[in-house]
Each structure stands twice: as structure tokens, then as C-alpha cells.
Write a protein that binds this DNA or RNA. Sequence first.
DNA 1: TCAACATATTAGATATTTCTAATATAATAA
DNA 2: TTATTATATTAGAAATATCTAATATGTTGA
Lengths: 104, 104
Amino acid sequence: MSNMGNQLISNVFKALGHPTRIQIIKLLRKGELCVCDILPNIDSEQSNTSQHLTVLKNQGIVESRKDGSKVIYSIKNKEVYEMIDLVEAIILRQIEETKSSLSK
Amino acid sequence: MSNMGNQLISNVFKALGHPTRIQIIKLLRKGELCVCDILPNIDSEQSNTSQHLTVLKNQGIVESRKDGSKVIYSIKNKEVYEMIDLVEAIILRQIEETKSSLSK
DNA sequence: TCAACATATTAGATATTTCTAATATAATAA
DNA sequence: TTATTATATTAGAAATATCTAATATGTTGA
């Protein structure tokens, strides 16, 4: 019965459509982190990482709060991990398929 | 334990990050369709829709077979519907949040 | 107050996606 | 054959996303 706008839906997927943003989400799986702890674990510049965090925040995937001079980010909607698990299942199946087609 | 490449994962999300492609996926929820039945239900040109179908196929989201002069597309990995449901849950929660913050 | 730190914002260059229009290919029917 | 239908491919323009470098803002401690 759902008739959610496809634009809204695709916006969320698009926010997940970048390797650095997936990397950030995976980092946050264990719990909240300040930007200062995210930065050294991410393969991109400070300003770029900050921009990626903004993209994730705009789509409601992460949220942030201030703690003194630091900003602490955390996952806002945990569904995102189920989504990543589902994508990994799809990819594994694709890989299996490729293997078996090669051995024919 | 999963350590699937973030590039591979984000490629799948990126393929879902377009409203027309979500529209196509939703059309295929009821079952397979030839391109000729997809086209009239999609808000874009024939060649453009064909390109979107290619994007979905490249990421293993849909598959196709030939039937005479027609090409029949179907969903290859049904996980995609669970993913859409999860995104809709996220969006609904965001909307509720917006509402309640407005009424304060 | 001032210096140092933590993070965000901006502007512009570069890269990638998307779209349109035209054309190609393949199957079928006349 | 030839025309028609069904779909894919291509090229290039336009739109959007990404990255880098520079700068701005806010916080804290000396």
C-alpha cells in the first residue's frame, strides 16, 4: 500500500552510494564517535569527510551532538546496517554466480 | 566479520539512488515485465529507461531474458524490496520527527 | 585576550551521471 | 525482401557530485 515518493527513497539510497560514507557508517557500528576519532580512520581529507557526514545527516542516517569543542556522531536509524547486510548478501550471490559461470 | 569492499557495496546503493530506477523496481514487484510494458509506466524516454535498466542489471538487481523480439525483465535479488521497506521506515520516522519539532 | 584545537563552510576545479536525439541491431510480419 | 516493431547503443550537452584548498566559526586553556 506504500506510496512513498520515489524521490525521497532514492535520496536515502544515494546518500549510501559512496564508499567513504559506507566506511563512516561501519566505523559507527560499535557506537558513537567524535569527528576527531573518525578522521584518522577515513581515507579522505578533513573537509571532505565533514561534507560526507553532512550528507549522511541530511538523510537522517546519522545524527550529532556537541560535547565541548567536539562533535559526536552516531547512527540515527539502525536499519542502515540491515540494509548493508542485504547488499552484502546480493553481492555474495553475484560472486558465486560469476564463479560458476567461469567454471563452465 | 564481514569485510566486503565498500566500493562494491556503495555501487549497489548507487544503482538504487535514482527515482526512475526505484519506479522500475516497484513495477516489477508483481512479476516480470517486458520492456514494452515497462516503458508506458515510466516517466522517461525509451532510451533513457533502457539505460536505467542496464544500470540495475549491472548491479545484479534485475535480470533479463529474450522472448522473441521482446526482452523480459525481472527482479533478480528480492532483498531489494526489504531494502526499500527499510528506507521507507527511516523516512517515516524522519517525517514524524519533523512534525513533532514543528509543533513545539 | 590569545593561541591552539575541532569542525564546518565556501569556492572553484574536476569527475561522474543523466538526459536527449540519433542511430544501430535484431526479430517478425507482410 | 522490405517494413515494422522492440530494444540497445552511442555521442555529446547539461546537470550534479566530489574533491581540494582556503577560510570561517566556535571552544578551551594559558
